[in-house]
Amino acid sequence: MCPLCGERDRREFYYYGAEDFLNRPAADAEPGAWDNYLHLRDNPAGVTKDLWYHEMGCAQWLVVTRNTVTHEIIATELVAERAK
């Protein structure tokens, strides 16, 4: 499940929220952009991407692609890799 540590117990990971949290607006952005970033969500019943922190492992933030209906994990990637 973790790209660095492999399959690990669910309890090692902390869930933060949808990947929208990666799209932080610029400091001078319109209030609407902040509302969108902090509060509004697509909240799909199906495939979603969200942020998890491997708190009790490698301490990396992950973008997890998974299915909210079946709980299937489809893919994981490091936020650090994506930022490059």
């Binding site: 869930y15 929220g17 949808a18 909210t68 709980h71």
Partner: peptide
């Protein structure tokens, strides 16, 4: 604690 529509939870 994670977004879900499964109407069933997990063991932890």
């Amino acid at each position: 604690f994670y977004a879900s529509y499964a109407a069933r939870g997990n063991l932890p």
